[in-house]
Write a protein that binds this DNA or RNA. Structure first.
Lengths: 341, 341
DNA sequence: CCAGTTCGTGCATGCGGTTGCAAGCCGTCC
DNA sequence: GGACGGCTTGCAACCGCATGCACGAACTGG
């Protein structure tokens, strides 16, 4: 049934082939596959039968050419390996699929690839793009010029007004800091993300400023969001604080986990007994028994849903203003930090 | 510079626009963007200038229509969330990009979505597909019928001859089993993957049969590849073996980690002192200090490279035979198992 | 029974490129 | 000086489908 490669199926039957077999015109076939077009039930039946027999599927490429709608959306991700939410990508593609839109995936190995990627994005005449990578304002402006809607994911258009969906770093970090201060921690340290991560900086700034408001000083060391850098940064902070560190705020969960392991194994500390550690994101491993990281969980499902909704709206109505949607994360108490509550 | 939306850039300049501005025919423009076509240097210069001024990019959709090459490859993944190698996707897309091929990503939420996905795959006239999902033989046959090359990733065409790239489960599990037996473990347990995972079954069968050959008995409990199921399966095995279990073989690393945490925290055991645990895959967390899982690391880079190479070959020469490439994994000694070496 | 609708269908055109063919241009060689 | 060959370039015909328009048939109402 699935085999039997006749001449027609060899290279994909066309609407003409179907038309001939059903004894109608090509336009009838086209209408038959279009929602809400006027076709008599009997004809439709004949056409659908012929189509089935020929294994006909409308050529989306040709459709795209004539309708000027490719039904393609580009997803541009800076670094899949550092995407500690594989679910984000899965959720986005599944939600877009549900709306009849296909995903063209671009993964950047390096910042410098952005222009090459955009080149391809223009060529494929995508209907829109979801971007989880750092784009230069000029590059964002190029999207506006070409009237292709963009939604940034956990990024903001630095200077350029552009639609975005983010998890609220500021309120999240404030909550963490307040809980730590409330529990009377004394010596604070922060492990930042890489300097070129906007969201990393935002988290660190939020934590830092709230600490200052509450009259606490702190040391900041930079990591790069990965496991090893968490341990390395902890070591650095231990030196700087003469081992007095008792509260550690990490810009993401993976570094928090690295720091926890290092604290326990390298420094022989109790977590949270001697050192409280908090993270951000709520990734899978954060909930593992060995860690149970006290962290802020991003509402991934709601965020991806919002991103898709915003993008689809803007594909329909390109003039829509560049709304920014901010989602509050949920504080997961965990047990990597001593909290008073 | 990047702004200034003139009429021409509004909806994408066409080759006619460029031709008019450069004072040449449309075909000249086309040739100018085609590798190895004959265009006089002076003309080319004029055309490229005009193209730049108009922000012209050839319409890949139109090119695809006429050349019958979309330069699109579908990547079909069963469940991104369970893809414990995010790098696989990143590597595949980057390698394909390097060859001028774009990735159309399909993520399956459920098995039942396969037919819908294939529908779209046919419509977009992709040049080929990389599949890391379980397809029914009929579905694989459909690819053959339509002459669109497929390469399976860590899957095999059950009954259907189809190109594939796999990590050698059998030799990997044999190595692990032999090392455990050599170190004189006595009571063996296996945590299997879900029944519908071909590769999971293969790993378990390999471990089981080798154990039998070496005169060791073992108990098998099924998990589903995730963290929690590792702990749950360990609990089950502890009951079945009356707590005598001293060697645990897990079908993947994540379950191994779940089991390690559960052994230490729930059962108060030493790993590897009281219980040796081995996994499979070599995912990131397996190397974390707290675990250092003894496991088989898949050579992801070589495997993705091979997958891409095989696919490209078959796009050029569809008649190529359905080769299967098997890559040996590397034994990472780790420290979650007591080994004699 | 005829005029006015409504519905269904075919014709023809165009989306934005590619490419075979032939014509034009120019230099070369006998 | 004329024939010839190579390099450029334009012409025109598609690729597979969507869609405005016109026309015939069926249906309705007076």
């Amino acid at each position: 049934m699935a085999s039997g490669a006749s001449k027609e199926t060899q290279r994909g039957a066309t609407s003409y082939d179907v038309a001939r077999r059903a004894g109608v015109s090509q336009s009838a076939v086209s209408r038959c596959f279009k929602q809400g077009a006027s076709v008599a039930p009997r004809t439709r039946e004949r056409i659908l039968t012929a189509a089935r027999e020929l294994n006909y599927y409308p050529n989306a490429i040709a459709q795209g050419l004539i309708t000027r709608r490719s039904n393609l959306v580009a997803i541009i991700i800076s670094n899949l390996t550092n995407l500690y939410h594989p679910e984000v990508l899965a959720e986005l593609t599944q939600r877009l699929s549900a709306h009849g839109i296909r995903v063209l995936l671009f993964s950047l190995a390096a910042e410098s690839d952005v222009d090459e990627v955009l080149d391809q994005v223009w060529r494929y005449r995508v209907d829109g793009a979801v971007v989880a990578a750092r784009l230069h304002p000029d590059q964002l402006a190029a999207f506006a010029d070409r009237v292709v809607p963009v939604v940034l994911y956990n990024r903001v258009g630095e200077g350029v007004p552009v639609a975005s969906v983010c998890c609220d770093s500021i309120s999240g970090e404030h909550a963490l800091v307040e809980a730590l201060v409330e529990a009377e921690h004394r010596v604070f340290g922060i492990i930042a993300g890489p300097a070129d991560s906007y969201i990393g900086e935002e988290r660190v700034d939020a934590a830092h400023s709230r600490l200052q408001q509450l009259g606490k000083d702190c040391r900041i060391v930079r990591g790069n969001f990965d496991y090893d850098s968490g341990g390395a940064a902890l070591k650095e902070l231990m030196q700087q604080t003469n081992r007095k560190l008792d509260a550690l705020i990490c810009a993401n969960d993976v570094m928090a986990i690295g720091a926890i392991d290092s604290a326990r194994i390298t420094f022989g500390l109790q977590v949270p007994g001697d050192l409280s550690v908090v993270g951000f994101d709520g990734v899978g491993p954060a909930t593992w028994l060995a860690y149970q990281v006290t962290t802020i969980r991003q509402p991934v499902r709601r965020m991806t849903e919002a991103a898709v909704a915003m993008l689809l709206e803007r594909i329909e109505r390109p003039k829509l203003s560049p709304e920014q949607r901010l989602f509050a994360g949920e504080l997961l108490p965990g047990s990597s930090a001593r909290l008073s509550s």
